[in-house]
Design a protein around this nucleic acid. Structure first.
Lengths: 234, 234
DNA sequence: ATTTGACCAGAAATAAATAATCGGTCAAAC
DNA sequence: GTTTGACCGATTATTTATTTCTGGTCAAAT
């Protein structure tokens, strides 16, 4: 494992391949998008793609990993900006506010067959951290730090966060976006709900909570980066 | 319109047809379920079905209407029982608590193609009140009665109720039910969230709110019954 | 008056044969 | 060392012909 011929180090080209793939995935979907399409969109030859990735599948794997990292980065950046007004809720609010920047990740979470088609049958989905849900263990750390109400059942809280987030991402199947209130407002109210329901009245030790949080996100990102670096097949 | 040959008044048989249809819809789905299947399951001949319904489509229309009425009845019954401990939230909590009794209605709300298949292409979906979402106008009445916080943006509130309910009904696509907390707990917590977020601190005039509510549900049910009675095609 | 089930035409499924496409390779070009 | 694109086997799509099935009807039976 890992002694496969190493891949090209031509980073700019790699980036263009990934960007082309992202565009075409959204436009055509996994099954209709051909490797030739990608090459053309990226302005290179088909063979060049295989200088970077072993297969169509691993290419999409890499794209997803890349976007997950970017998403985590986005969240961390804005979390740091929000240093002063931070609460436990900020993380979830940011996660919702920023996810529209990554329609592919939305497609992943939603199991959008239009976008991913047979890719879902080929790849072990749960390898992606994204597919995993809010972990009660994480909430427990937050609770111990005092930024989540002590009397909250954490499995219930995690489940609630999950279905709210999922509902927010899928409700467009029922309500056309043009009938929806501004997304910004929806996310703000979402945060208000969490604040009123999950946060203890006194607010808890916000600094401690935030420290733990940043640590966890950094660990998560490190995990993603590690996967990106061992992207050669076994 | 309406001068079509009137249908059989054999109510017990009608009921058995509808029950058979409900079972087979869930087992086979609309497209795989044949009229002969239904006849056999109901223990009658195929022709007998057409003594009650003009087509497969109107049969399913009728079934949905029937179940919608039953659902509304269930809610009203339990609302009346809850006379004393009532709050604005009770309605939504009951609606969620009772909906699992009506898997077909869940399928409708979710646009479950497994169950309804091509039926969705044939029928104007929005004829079903169920498909319509929380109406801000309804919330406005509740707000005027004082059982909803005065400072709440009602379009936002309606949208939030919608995506929460939708998320609750669809999250099983992501989280297998056996990993979920007891549904009863989830619904209770759902109610707690609404209570904390939507209800004014003083609780408002609950009697007034409840009176309006019962009136609206009765009107809704009357509308459904009316449709059931004019179920002959134009 | 009711109820049935054989029957019909159109729709849908199946099968077979053929054509087109695509993921991936690698000798040749650069 | 890099990059390319013609090429290959396998999968997938298209076409055509054939068969089966199904929603709906109605003359006959009850």
């Amino acid at each position: 494992m890992g002694i496969k011929a190493q891949k090209s180090e031509n980073k700019p080209r790699e980036k263009r391949i990934l960007e082309a793939t992202a565009r075409l995935l959204l436009r055509y979907g996994y099954d209709k998008m051909t490797m030739s399409d990608i090459a053309e969109e990226a302005g290179i030859s088909k063979g060049a793609i295989y200088l970077h990735y072993d297969s169509k599948e691993t290419l999409v794997d890499a794209l997803i990993t890349r976007q997950s990292i970017a998403y985590a980065d986005d969240i961390m950046t804005l979390l740091e900006q929000d240093m002063d007004s931070w609460s436990f809720v900020t993380l979830y609010q940011l996660a919702m506010r920023l996810i529209p920047r990554y329609p592919l990740l939305i497609g992943l979470i939603r199991n959008n067959k239009n976008i991913f088609g047979t890719y879902f049958q080929r790849t072990a989905l749960d390898m992606f951290h994204l597919k995993r849900r809010s972990r009660p263990e994480f909430l427990q750390l937050m609770q111990q730090a005092g930024v989540i109400r002590a009397d909250l059942d954490l499995k219930l809280a995690a489940y609630t966060l999950d279905y709210m987030a999922y509902g927010l991402l899928t409700i467009e199947d029922i309500i056309p976006p043009e009938e929806a209130p501004p997304f910004e407002d929806v996310v703000n109210f979402f945060g208000e709900i969490l604040e009123k329901t999950f946060t203890p009245p006194d607010g808890g030790n916000k600094e401690a909570g935030k420290a733990i949080l940043m640590q966890l996100i950094a660990a998560y990102k490190a995990q993603l980066v590690a996967r990106e670096e061992t992207s050669d097949k076994e």
